[in-house]
Design a protein around this nucleic acid. Structure first.
Length: 818
RNA sequence: GCCGGGGUGGCGGAAUGGUAGACGCGGCGGACUUAAAAUCCGCUACCUUCACGGGUGUGUGGGUUCGAAUCCCACCUCCGGCACCA
């Protein structure tokens, strides 16, 4: 393609100029209203992918649009620099994670600059640097002192490949979110954050202004709140210290249908309840369950297996003895790790009962039930039956009555269970923030005092994981220390923090990245919270949930005065390869943005990212597609550099001038509304239409030079947030004062945008039969008269009677004929 | 299995109850050129007609409505998420 201008030269020229002039420096004291628009910071993999462009270029356009609307805009950038991938890559290349990460960042800064975004680089944050992670430690201690961080032994998720524990949120289909390895469980003592204490507040989305429903649904499902009853079964005849087994159910109305109890294989009572006769079988089963992979164990396809313990428990409501089984479909990590088996009204219990020939007793009768046996569990509503005093109640009434009675008798209590577990924040890896506590033989867990922070991550440590705990444990200089309380010998915590810790509060740090007396400067708190956040939907139940929790915690501690970190959220889609498949090296469909920028310029890539389709839908890369927008930018160049005085006043057609002004105002309105709602593709389409129109009237010579100038000026202003480099250049070439990016977005006049004629569609029985050009303000009677007079229409109405006429002002007349 | 979001020309897409296919790509024809590229102009859903025109058409089948891509019901299909949570 032959270019009218050299995008490479223009990109460089203006990027240097903006840098030199500090055009993107954000002033905290600017009197204009603030707008904090943030995009998820990238992981410094070392190479800026086209996916980064897809996330960042439209986000920058939106932030620029807000700035042109008169806001003081903070649109920052940083690097998510800690974490497993950096470490793994560093290990395989034999370079230190620090130097690997920092050289990647150096490279990515250059690539990011090529986007031409309004990032204020003075506010950049890099969370693997001590000036950032010391505040991770400071915040960790805040949560610790608040009782929201605790250390406990629990069955945790372990990735054998990454050699570390993971949070539940990092397990995807039983595999490690990062490397895909099937995870296992380990009983380990770990650091947790009490996110479950905030479960109900996290379910309350009323503090959010505009979030995709999809994310709200995902968070709601992840938290998985269920109201139910904890009900205990009597095992006092076993002579054990533990006199009862507690189970959790949401269907206490089915308590009379219990025909067995199932314990999770890891349940602490398993060994005690197993009789001699069944010991061998039970031990074999438990052993087997322990070896079964998490994937198989959680697969819904596998049938329900179990083994009888030989013991029985008593259902206190009817005095019945029911057998106690062990089954791996019961999870130790949910509820009490034991369930009451009600085969008639639970699909899983039904399958289990069939397999082990356990009785099925219906206690909630289906509506019109004829008394016959069930072929599957009945989960619907009905009237209680076989339930003693509760017979005849609806199941809803049954839940109320039985719950109340159980509480009265002390056999159980109403409670709420959550699917979500506490957030496991410790990792057995090197490349992360050291957890700021020491272990003293005398004093136990001792937090590092605030004024001793940061606890520096030693640079001379072994960072290759051994599988025998954290790499830092083998670094004597780090490990051995003195107790901050008694001064005696102590060991440092050698686990590091989950990297989601970094991103849980980074929106605070951007407001004052150099501040050294706290995580952020309270003097600039007016920036917060974030007005608009953009990023991928894959963080729905990880980063976005953690961050909401974190900020609520900090709110309760008085660190911040708001409860939601991100008021509005927009999820962009995924950019696909030219073959419509997900981009991957193995498919060979990866696009290198640097090469395209080199050839066609940053603005062409920006435009294409926005023109490809709705931003939330993603879409396929297209070589010919980007050539199309590059060609359009050249056409724009060609049109804009024309000399307006070449227009000959003698040819001016007032009607054409009016049409042009009207289209200009319509385009301003459309472009404004579209950019406001992230509808970049239709905003660009509108600008293309305006450019086509201008090109046409130029050829006709039908407008005057003043109108031409007005159109060109406004056109450039509208294009400026989309294509900042070429518009700045053209702004200069058309004799306007630097910088176009400090101008206001054009405003429109509805009166000038109004059409004075419309195309009146005439339908007969809903089918279009004619189109008439009529004055926009036509009255109904006149419109009908014109419609009926149309010869085309008459051929359909002649000899028939018009029984009804529908008139839609400004649009159509529909004649209903018999 | 459950919960979301989709399915519109050759392609990306526009239109959220009122002219289906804006805008762009591709294709075809023309201008310019010795020629090609680039650029510019015109045409471009399908069937039918010499033409004017007519008919059909937004995954499939029903429905509501004067009128449906748009609303309702059922189904097919693609993508994403969750998946024994008692």
């Amino acid at each position: 393609m032959e270019l009218r201008y050299d995008p490479k030269e223009i990109d460089r020229k203006w990027q240097d100029r903006w840098d030199k002039d500090g055009l993107h420096r954000v002033d905290n004291d600017d009197p204009r209203p603030k707008w904090y628009e943030m995009t998820m910071y990238p992981y410094p993999s070392g190479d800026l992918h086209i996916g980064h462009w897809y996330a960042m270029a439209p986000a920058d356009c939106h932030a620029r649009f807000r700035r042109m609307q008169g806001y003081n805009v903070l649109h920052p950038i940083g690097f998510d620099a800690f974490g497993l991938p950096a470490e793994n890559a560093a290990i395989s290349r034999g370079v230190h994670p620090y130097s690997w990460t920092m050289s990647n960042i150096e490279n990515m800064r250059k690539q990011l600059r090529s986007i031409g975004a309004i990032y204020d680089w003075d506010r950049e944050i890099v969370c693997c640097l001590p000036e950032y992670y010391r505040w991770n430690q400071w915040l960790f201690l805040k949560f610790f002192h608040q009782g929201l961080a605790y250390r406990a032994k629990a069955p945790v998720v372990w990735c054998p490949s990454c050699q570390t524990v993971l949070a539940n949120e990092q397990v995807i289909n039983g595999s490690c979110e990062r490397c895909g390895t099937t995870i296992t469980r380990r009983d380990l003592e770990q650091w947790f954050f009490r996110i479950t204490q905030y479960a109900d507040r996290l379910l309350d989305f009323s503090g959010l202004l505009d979030w995709p429903n999809k994310i709200l649904t995902m968070q709601t499902n992840w938290i998985g709140r269920s109201e139910g009853v904890e009900i205990s079964f009597d095992i006092s005849d076993k002579g054990l210290e533990q006199k009862e087994i507690s189970t959790f159910t949401t269907r206490i109305d089915t308590i009379f249908g219990v025909t067995f109890i199932v314990l999770a294989p890891e349940h602490p009572l398993v060994a005690d309840l197993t009789t001699e006769e069944h010991r061998e079988a039970v031990e074999a089963y438990v052993d087997q369950a322990r070896r079964t992979s998490e994937i198989d164990r959680l697969s819904t396809d596998t049938d329900k297996t179990g083994v009888f313990t030989g013991s029985y428990a008593v259902n206190r409501l009817n005095g019945e003895k029911v057998p106690i089984y062990i089954g791996d479909y019961v999870l130790m990590t949910y509820g009490t790790g034991a369930v009451m088996g009600v085969p008639a009204h639970d699909a899983r219990d039904f399958v289990f009962a069939q397999k082990y020939r356990l009785p099925v007793r219906i206690v909630v009768a289906p509506i019109s039930w004829d008394g016959s046996e069930l072929t599957e569990a009945y989960l619907g509503d009905g009237f209680m039956t076989n339930s003693g005093a509760y017979d005849g109640m609806t199941d809803e009434e049954g839940i109320e009555a039985i719950s109340a009675d159980i509480e009265k008798k002390g056999w159980g209590r109403r409670t709420v269970s959550y699917r979500m577990r506490d957030w496991l924040v410790s990792r057995q890896r090197y490349w992360g923030t050291p957890i700021p506590v020491v272990y003293c033989d005398k004093c136990g867990i001792v937090p590092v005092p605030e004024d001793e922070l940061p606890v520096l991550l030693p640079t001379d440590a072994e960072y290759i994981p051994t599988g025998e705990g954290s790499p830092l444990a083998s670094n004597a200089g780090f490990l051995n220390t003195n107790c901050y309380r008694c001064g005696g010998t102590a060991r440092r915590e050698t686990d590091t923090m989950d990297t989601f810790f970094d991103s849980s509060w980074y929106m605070l740090r951007y407001t004052s990245p150099g501040y050294s007396d706290g995580p952020f400067d309270p003097a600039v708190k007016d920036w917060l919270p974030v007005d608009q956040y953009t990023g991928g939907a894959e963080h729905a139940v990880m980063h976005l949930l953690y961050s909401r929790f974190f900020i609520k915690g900090l709110h309760d501690m008085g660190v911040v005065d708001f409860e939601e970190p991100f008021l509005r959220l927009f999820n962009q889609g995924v950019i696909l390869g030219e073959d419509h498949e997900k981009m991957s090296k193995s498919r060979g469909n990866v696009v290198n943005p640097d090469e395209v920028v080199e050839g066609l310029g940053a603005d062409a890539v920006r435009c294409f990212m926005m023109f490809i389709g709705p931003w939330d839908q993603g879409g396929p890369w297209s070589e010919v597609g980007i050539n199309g927008v590059a060609r359009w930018l050249n056409r724009v160049w060609d049109i804009v550099v024309r000399e307006p005085s070449d227009l000959d006043a003698a040819n001016v057609d007032p009607e054409s001038v009016r049409d042009t002004i009207r289209l200009l105002h319509q385009t301003i309105r459309r472009c404004h509304n579209d950019l406001d709602r992230f509808k970049f593709n239709t905003a660009i389409a509108g600008l293309m239409e305006l450019a086509n129109h201008l090109n046409r009237v130029w050829a006709e010579g039908s407008i005057d030079s003043a109108t031409w100038r007005e159109c060109i000026e406004n056109f450039l202003l509208m294009l400026a947030p989309i294509a900042p480099h070429v518009t700045e250049e053209l702004w200069e070439r058309t004799g306007q004062a630097y910088s176009i990016h400090q101008q206001a977005f054009p405003s429109w006049d509805d009166a000038l945008a109004a059409e004075d004629t419309i195309t009146l569609v005439v339908q007969v029985n809903g089918k279009v039969r004619d189109k008439l050009e009529v004055p926009a303000n036509i009255e109904e009677a006149a419109a009908q008269e014109l419609a009926l007079a149309s010869p085309k229409v008459r051929s359909y109405t002649d000899g028939k009677s018009v029984s009804k006429t529908i008139y839609v002002p400004g649009r159509l007349v529909n004649l209903v004929v018999q």
